[in-house]
Amino acid sequence: MSFFRLPIGLCTDIQKVIAEFWWGSKKEKRHIHWAKWDRLCKAKGMGGMGFRDLTCFNQALVAKQGWRVIHFPESLMARVLQARYFKNSSFMQAKLGSNPSFIWRSILWGRQVLQNGMRWRIGCRQQVKIYQSRWIPRLTSFKKFSRATLPVEVTVSTLIDKEHKWNEILIKQHFDHEDAYKILKIALPRALEPDQMIWTYDKQGRYVVKSGYQIAMSLKFKDQPSSSTASPTEWNAI
């Protein structure tokens, strides 16, 4: 599960066995399943039972291989994949290509999780583009909300003055109040460091399967209704 995308049918069969055990079903006697499996897979704080959806868990595990390609580019695996699939681009922009291997298909499937949980940490500021890159710390999206008033290709370095501080006047001039507040809260490094892709749901910026699983769940179950009255605190108390 950490390297390959398991067939959906296999995950479904395993989940059926777990569900039958949970509801007490046997070959000679079937019991009623009182709730859908996707509802049982919700976290307890959201009214579920915390069972793992195997497809989403599989995707979160495979995403770790993509994380290693990004942060360990000198490894044998990363160099082989780059030579075969993305010679002239980065891993995040790589495409499926012609006649791809099963492991490359699996890694690109896991990359969907990374694309929804990674953002740039500002360093030398030469790679991060203001309007195209994901760099503003915001949980729903890491891009700006403001209308573009600067050249499209301009980088974040434009927003920093000679004293290595945010140019507050320029930021407030070109961004709305919410975006400006988020940008000014970003801590700039004391020494010049390269721009780095980090996992936004971890304090140290490293990919964590637990939070990756939550991203995979949100991708699979996008538009589920939720209770308007009960809070996670109340569910946790129960």
Rank of each mutant, 00 (worst) to 15 (best):
E74Q: 12
I103Y: 08
K95D: 07
K42E: 06
I32Y: 08
R147W: 05
K182G: 06
K220W: 00
I14A: 11
S146C: 09
F57D: 04
D176H: 10
I169W: 08
P189G: 01
G47K: 00
F21C: 14
L184I: 04
S141I: 02
Q59S: 11
A78G: 13
H31Y: 07
Q204C: 07
K29W: 00
Q196C: 11
Q127T: 03
K64H: 07
Q15N: 09
W109T: 04
A230W: 12
R5C: 03
W135K: 12
Q224K: 10
Y213M: 06
M1N: 08
I136Q: 07
Q196M: 09
M46R: 10
I215V: 13
F4S: 11
G50A: 03
Y181N: 11
R68A: 11
N236A: 06
E234T: 03
N99D: 12
F142S: 15
L40C: 04
S231P: 02
K165W: 02
W37N: 06
R121N: 00
T229Q: 08
M197V: 15
I136C: 14
R125M: 13
C124R: 04
I198M: 05
R125Y: 00
T55W: 04
A60G: 03
P137Y: 08
E20L: 04
L114T: 04
N99M: 08
Q82I: 08
W166G: 05
A187V: 14
G66N: 07
E20V: 07
Q204G: 09
R5L: 03
T200R: 13
H31C: 13
F102G: 05
A191K: 13
Q112P: 11
I215R: 07
A237L: 13
V156D: 10
R125D: 03
I8P: 14
V128I: 15
P73R: 11
K185V: 01
L61I: 00
S218L: 07
P151M: 04
W109S: 12
T200F: 15
S146H: 14
G212A: 07
V17D: 14
A78D: 14
Y207H: 01
K185R: 15
G66V: 08
F102E: 03
I103M: 14
S98D: 09
G45S: 11
E20K: 15
Y85V: 12
K172S: 09
M46V: 05
S90T: 14
R138W: 09
N167L: 05
V69D: 03
Q82H: 07
K64V: 07
T200H: 15
N167S: 08
Y213S: 03
R30G: 02
T233D: 10
I198A: 02
G66I: 06
K87W: 01
I186H: 10
R68W: 11
P232A: 03
K27H: 05
R68N: 08
R68S: 13
K222G: 02
L170G: 00
Q126H: 07
H177D: 12
S25R: 01
G9S: 15
P225F: 09
L96N: 04
L188C: 09
I70F: 02
G47F: 03
K36L: 10
S25F: 05
Y207E: 06
F102Y: 15
K95L: 08
K172G: 02
I186G: 05
I238W: 05
L96V: 13
H31L: 02
S75Y: 06
